[in-house]
Amino acid sequence: MPTARQLNFVERLYLPEIVRGLSHTIRHLFRPKFTLQYPEERDVPLSRFRGMPALVRDENGRTKCVACKLCEFVCPPVAILIEAHEVADHPVEKGPKVFDINMLRCIMCGYCEEVCPEEAIFLTEKFELAAPSRAELVFNKEQLLEIGGVRPDPYHKWG
């Protein structure tokens, strides 16, 4: 337990502190560098990384999303906008006509991925999204599918 005792005479002189401070500085000169040289050097991405959410297709190229709107509902900042329409692709019948994610609103909490009953939306490792206008950061369905790519479906729910 630390004690709040008075400073003694040696401690009241500034000199020992200056020497101590400088010796710290010198020691740190020879320590391994901690700085990450960012654009050239990156941290190894971790498996749970939560970046930008994106839609995925299955191996047949079908959009996995069936526009159930559960992610739109759960999204705390209301960043997702879905409009459903009927699709000819039997037996799915329903799909998203419009699927916009406003990345300015998105807080990357991962709730959409967590609730999705189709495994159609995933958080990707993409996060460097800075853009000079708001419009560039509202991603539509095509852009999201391109970012998400293909995820093979282990369950083949739809035959």
Partner: peptide, 12 residues
């Protein structure tokens, strides 16, 4: 924290 939750801050 990132290892555990996926983000550095605002972990949820």
């Amino acid at each position: 924290f990132e290892d555990l939750t996926g983000v550095r801050m605002n972990t949820s």
